[in-house]
Amino acid sequence: MASILYIARMTKKLNHPDDIGMNPRLFPWRDSFKAGAIWMFLVYLTDIPGLVLLKHHPDWPMLVRVTIVLLPFICGYLYVRGVVRWIEGMDELHQRITLQSFNFALVVYLFLSAGWFMLARAGVWDALAQSTKVHFEYVPWNNCTFIICMTYILFGAGYSTLKRRYQ
């Protein structure tokens, strides 16, 4: 029994950040699902439609409205849990690179959002909207879909830079 467990452990495929991506021809869905992709898609499916529903049905009961708002948040929590388990299945080098990339993504996101609010307070986005019709004042920094998309993009940027350090 111990030897079976040992063999099972030794043949268990390690998770790798290069195994996940958006193109299903290049990246098998199974690996993406291991990284919590199904929860990420559920966040997308529940977040924006939920906001549209709430906007068009302000008369719905409070319990329904709270459920609609919390659904993407719960899916987001399960997505983060899936990502944490996916990272735990990596070897130590890739754990380090992935965690550093997530740290990079979170710090850049915080700086971008803080900078955006400072510029908004200075009236830059209103002035820009009046002169160029580009509406940066509507960037949804507190939206689950936007947070996950931005984190994913920033993680990719951080990962592609950081992995070169160890090659």
Binding site: M10, L14, D91, L93, H94, Q167
Partner: peptide, 12 residues
């Protein structure tokens, strides 16, 4: 394989 890590880790 013997150490249960990736080849990139050994290379690094």
């Amino acid at each position: 394989d013997k150490l249960g890590v990736s080849r990139q880790t050994i290379n690094a």
